[in-house]
């Protein structure tokens, strides 16, 4: 999940009786699965929560280009290079779809990006981990995009129309990302040298736990989840999504012939799910707060790009104004 901790500003969910007439009408619409559109009345909390969630999601897509950008200049073959470039480009595109959805709520993209660069808002913790070998390009596609897809498929039904439509578009485009990643790993495991196979296992060892953290804190530690679920901004709880992801991923892991760095991971016949070990939540909160391996570098890179590009954007605007002036003078 790309939005791991979204503040709703609500301590608890209001009952219908406690709501104002407008709030009640709004909640009934949500309950009836009617999509909310930009010009509809909405509680301020709903609007703010959405802006936070969508911008976190968008920031994550954009920052998420960097760990892969780290290898795009070193991709080993023409085919792999082209695939990786297309995937990274999609991520920039998905960031833009999401910012566009966010702007329908009256938020300003540039302001939200400034907040990111000032360290005031979050993005997915996963992108603060370094990509250290080529197999990471496979693992990021398979595990990281895989975890994101589990969440995004559900978000296609989110209550806010523009967000939902952006998610539908993103899901359609993202289906190739996970396959692309898995295929990299599969080829390395099947036909690779011993060194290449070790590369894969090393990569899985590093990305396994951070991928599980992508779904955010456990349900009992997520006070904001309930309100988000009532507003149908979120559709499934963090723990439910995490379990879904693990259940679908373990067989794929076994098919690769690799292992997870979790001695407690095993099938539980009774539950019909995989059991898994305790996530290191201290690490999760550390990374989210900015103390991950790459937090500083990621934000610096993005800030330098946008700040360093100010004169470029300024020039384009000045040129556009001059052209418009010329046209008016000619008319």
């Amino acid at each position: 999940m790309y939005a791991q901790l979204v503040e709703t500003g609500a301590k608890r969910v209001k009952s219908l009786e406690e709501m104002s007439p407008e709030e009640r009408e709004f909640q009934l619409k949500i309950d009836a699965e009617t999509k909310i559109e930009a010009k509809n009345w909405m509680p301020e909390g709903y609007r703010k929560t959405l802006i936070r969630q969508i911008s976190q999601h968008a920031h994550s897509e954009v920052v998420g280009m960097l760990p892969e950008g780290n290898w795009v200049t070193r991709a080993p073959t023409l085919k792999r290079k082209l695939q990786l470039m297309a995937k990274i480009q999609d991520e920039a595109g998905h960031g833009l779809y999401l910012y566009s959805a966010m702007e329908t709520l009256g938020a300003d993209r540039d302001e939200e990006i400034d907040k990111l660069h000032e360290g005031k808002v979050k993005y997915s913790s996963i992108f603060n981990y370094p990509t250290l070998n080529w197999a990471d390009m496979g693992t990021v596609g398979w595990l990281v995009d895989g975890a994101a897809i589990v969440n995004q498929v559900v978000l296609q039904r989110t209550s806010y129309g523009p967000y939902s439509r952006a998610m539908i578009r993103i899901c359609k485009e993202e289906s190739f990302h996970q396959r692309q990643g898995y295929q990299i790993l599969l080829d390395l495991m099947r036909e690779g040298t011993e060194e290449q196979k070790q590369m894969v296992q090393d990569s899985i060892n590093r990305f396994w736990w951070p991928s599980l953290m992508m779904f955010g804190p456990s349900d009992d530690q997520s006070p904001n989840s309930q309100q988000s679920m009532a507003w149908k901004i979120k559709r499934k709880s963090n723990d439910e999504l995490r379990q879904m992801f693990i259940d679908q991923t373990v067989p794929q892991l076994e098919f690769l012939g690799c292992t997870a760095p979790d001695p407690d991971l095993k099938w539980n016949e009774e539950r019909g799910h995989y059991d898994f070990g305790e996530i290191d939540w201290q690490e999760f909160y550390d990374v989210l707060k900015g103390n991950g391996p790459c937090n500083k570098e990621r934000i610096e890179t993005r800030k330098n790009a946008i700040d360093g590009g100010a004169w470029v954007r300024e020039a384009a605007r000045a040129y556009a104004e001059k052209q418009q002036q010329k046209q008016q003078n000619a008319a």
Binding site: Q89, D90, G93, L96, Y97, S100, A101, E103, R109, A166, E173, R313, A316, R317, Y319, A320, Q323, Q324
Partner: peptide, 21 residues
Amino acid sequence: GSVHAADAEMAMENARDLYTR
């Protein structure tokens, strides 16, 4: 959806790059 651009020409190109990949 939408795009940011300095002028209509750039908006057209940005839209092409973003929405018709």
